[in-house]
Computed example of a mutant assay.
Amino acid sequence: MSGLLQSGYLSVLEAKTKDELLAHVVRFARDLGFQTVTASTVIDHFIGDSEFIWIDNAPAGYREIGEDRNTAKRDPVMQHCKHKSVPIIWSQNTYLDAGQAEVWEEQARFGYRHGICLALHMPEGRHFLFGVDRDQPLPKDVAEITRMVAALQLYAVHAQEASVRLLQPAVVSQEGPSLTPRELETLRWTMEGKTAWEVANVLGISERTAVLHANNAMHKLGCVNKHQAVLKALRLGLIR
């Protein structure tokens, strides 16, 4: 493994802005032999409702395809990463086998023909997707492919650490009361009009615990009822 790749693992942690993070991941991808790279932080807010924050060096015209939710639901690479942590080495055959040849053909026009992609799944409904792509086939040598995958996995761990600071919503670093994930989830579902009993069923907890989470959130936010707490949490950017 080249010294340049090894130094990249630590240097990405020094990125201070979103643009610097992108510059670091692009440099790493090119050192590894890939033209394009995509890093995405995914935050699950509700069942079926996730927030994506992307950085990439996609060519003009591709972003609309890459960020289309309907296409992502059909994309076998995205679906693999959604459910598994094992990296996927993909090519046209990956899409043919999934019956999604047209998805591959659409992205191939922009140079997305072969690649490696993986996902890191963290607690509290947070995920980090990292993929590198190119228009030429990957090496057939197993040792070389193994080296690429290992380098990508190690780098993704470091890039994810930087993404916590730079890709996640500004609310993460915003001053204000610190609510637990359960307290935030309780407020989110309350915002959707759920009762304490319904929130308890959704979260798999007792009704008493759901009420406790709501009361704790109210206390931390300095509010007199849960609905006022929801409004204040929205204003502070704690929930969306």
Rank of each mutant, 00 (worst) to 15 (best):
W104T: 09
V25I: 15
F110A: 04
L238A: 03
H24S: 05
Q160C: 15
H158G: 00
L154R: 13
P177I: 06
F130T: 05
W189A: 01
A229K: 10
Q153M: 05
E64P: 02
K194T: 05
R147H: 13
T38R: 13
R63T: 15
K140R: 12
G61M: 11
R235P: 00
L184N: 02
F52N: 04
P169K: 11
T195Q: 11
Y112E: 09
L234A: 06
K140D: 12
V37Q: 00
T41W: 09
D133K: 11
A119E: 05
Y62N: 02
A156K: 03
A108F: 12
D133I: 04
Q107I: 14
F34T: 04
A159M: 04
D75N: 09
S178V: 15
L236H: 08
G66C: 05
L4E: 13
K73N: 11
D19Y: 01
G222V: 07
T17E: 06
G66T: 06
Q6S: 08
R63F: 10
L13S: 12
D141E: 14
D75T: 01
G131I: 01
R113P: 01
F28L: 00
M122G: 06
L120T: 08
K18V: 12
W54N: 14
A60N: 09
I239E: 04
V77N: 05
V12D: 00
T186L: 04
G204T: 12
A72C: 12
M218W: 01
P123I: 13
D97Y: 02
D49G: 01
R235K: 15
L22K: 11
S178M: 09
Y62M: 15
V142W: 09
R165C: 02
Q6D: 06
A214W: 03
G125S: 08
H158M: 06
S7K: 10
G176T: 09
N216D: 13
